[in-house]
Every structure is written in structure tokens, then in C-alpha cells.
């Protein structure tokens, strides 16, 4: 009997450590499926962040680097310049990319570094226990914005895709979500595009994936996906922000 559903080759056998309802597992799978479909598993070098996805090197079945907090785009720059013929991607969360690593992602993008970034935006720090992220929404309660984020006090949430899409070196930027099947399908299409753009040597590509953190949001998985849809998407609209033909 033909198997119609199996684990992508580009994932190892190691079970994910992520919390129930966390979207990291979904996105890992989408990235791995894209690697399989493009036949690039053997030529891909990934860069894991500091954050919940710190162990991504255990899950992606390819050569990997573990970067220090926020520096994955600099590390990926080093790798890609040494191996311009390989496929290089970074996988980063919102604290890693949009806070401590904002300089690195911005300059890698503006240099038009030919690698792909998967940016997980779940509006909170997960691994360290639910602190405010640069993408935390207004009024959202976290351990370090216990009275709800206020623009006056904590500043406003940052829209990375919009910001980076103004840069010349960028070839492709899209924001997607994984809160339902239709959106997961769209997300995979965008991730595939972001790898294809790299293979075509067009420039920097980034996919921002709106994601969940039921544990630190204090919700069950179903509530979390509903919260994402009702609260995050209005502030972080989905779509393609830049695509160089």
C-alpha cells in the first residue's frame, strides 16, 4: 500500500520538545517538506537561534550551526559566503530577530545576502518564560509588561516584514500564519518561494510566520490559534510585502 503521509527526510527521528499547541513543530515540518521537495537536503546548512527553537539542530536533518542570540544572520552570512552553492537558512524567533538581532537581520537583508530566514513571530519570549517581545501586542500581558503593553511605557510592536521590505537587497518577504489548514498551505507556499528565491540567487528572502505560545499566553491550543487570528492578524496583516520578479 502506498504511504500517503510520512515524516519528511529533512527531519530527524528525534521527537520535538515543543509545548502542546506550539506552532514550531508545524513550521519545522513545512521547512523540511520544502527541503525535500526541492531536493536540497544534502546541500542545506541551517542556523538555529537562541530561543525555543535552540535545538532546531537536533530536528533538521542537515548540517547545522547553533548561533548566539540574534546573530544567526551574521553566521549565515559567513556560511553562505564560503559556500555560495549551498542553501543556507536561519530559523529565528521574535526576541532573537526583532530585538537583540535587529542589526544583524537588517544588514544581512540590505546586503542582499542570498539566504532564507524563517521568522517565527509569536509575540512573546517563550524559552525564558513569557517576557515581553518587540512584537508583543498593545495591552498584551507578559511577565515584563504585567499591566499590559502600553505604547507610552513600553513602546509599540514592531512590524518586521513591512520594515525590511523597504530595503533594496531584499528579494522576497511575506507574512503568513499557521492557525488553520488553509493558512498552513499558504505558509508552505511562501516558505518554498523563499527557498526558490535563494536558489535563483535573487537576494535575501524572509517569511514571517505568525505563531502561537499557548503556555506563555496562558491559553489552551485552540484558544491560542483563535487569539492569533483575532488579535495578531489585524496588527500584522498577512501577505507578500516584496517579491522581485
Amino acid at each position: 500500500m502506498a504511504k500517503v503521509f510520512e515524516r519528511p527526510k529533512s527531519l530527524t527521528d528525534k521527537p520535538f520538545h515543543y509545548c502542546p499547541g506550539c506552532a514550531h513543530g508545524i513550521v519545522h515540518r513545512l521547512v523540511a517538506e520544502v527541503m525535500d521537495e526541492l531536493g536540497v537536503q544534502d546541500s542545506t546548512i541551517g542556523v538555529a537561534p537562541v530561543g525555543c527553537a535552540v535545538f532546531a539542530y537536533d530536528y533538521f536533518n542537515c548540517d547545522m550551526h547553533e548561533a548566539s542570540h540574534g546573530r544567526a544572520p551574521a553566521v549565515a552570512t559567513g556560511i553562505k559566503r564560503v559556500h555560495p552553492d549551498k542553501v543556507v537558512f536561519t530559523y529565528q524567533g521574535d526576541g532573537d530577530l526583532a530585538s537583540i538581532g535587529l542589526a544583524e537581520i537588517t544588514h544581512a537583508a540590505t546586503r542582499g545576502e542570498k539566504f532564507t530566514t524563517i521568522f517565527i513571530n509569536n509575540a512573546i519570549y517563550g524559552m525564558t518564560g513569557g517576557q515581553m517581545a518587540p512584537t508583543t501586542l498593545l495591552d498584551q500581558v507578559t511577565t515584563t509588561s504585567p499591566y499590559g503593553r502600553s505604547g507610552d511605557r513600553e513602546g509599540y510592536p514592531i512590524r518586521i516584514s513591512e520594515m525590511l521590505s523597504t530595503l533594496e537587497g531584499v528579494a522576497y518577504i511575506a507574512r503568513v500564519s499557521v492557525h488553520d489548514i488553509k493558512n498552513i498551505t499558504n505558509a508552505k507556499r511562501a516558505i518554498k518561494k523563499a527557498f526558490e528565491v535563494q536558489l535563483e540567487g535573487k537576494g535575501f528572502a524572509l517569511v514571517e510566520v505568525l505563531s502561537t505560545c499557548p503556555t506563555n499566553w496562558g491559553m489552551d491550543p485552540i484558544e491560542a490559534f483563535k487569539w492569533l487570528e483575532e488579535n495578531m492578524i489585524p496588527y500584522y496583516p498577512l501577505g507578500t510585502f516584496k517579491e522581485v520578479k
Binding site: 546548512i45 542556523v47 550551526h65 548561533a67 548566539s68 546573530r71 551574521a74 553566521v75 549565515a76 552570512t77 559567513g78 556560511i79 553562505k80 559566503r81 564560503v82 559556500h83 542589526a103 544583524e104 537588517t106 544588514h107 546586503r111
Partner: peptide, 20 residues
């Protein structure tokens, strides 16, 4: 590459060195 900072420069070194 003239990096955006010394921090980035050393991490580019980390990437390039790890890549061999």
C-alpha cells in the same frame, strides 16, 4: 565584508570557520 558591528563580524567568522 565590512560588518555592521564587531559583534556581527565575529559571528560571520563563526559561520565561515564552521563552514570550513
Amino acid at each position: 565584508i565590512q560588518a555592521e558591528s564587531e559583534v556581527s563580524a565575529i559571528n560571520m567568522v563563526y559561520g565561515a570557520s564552521g563552514a570550513g
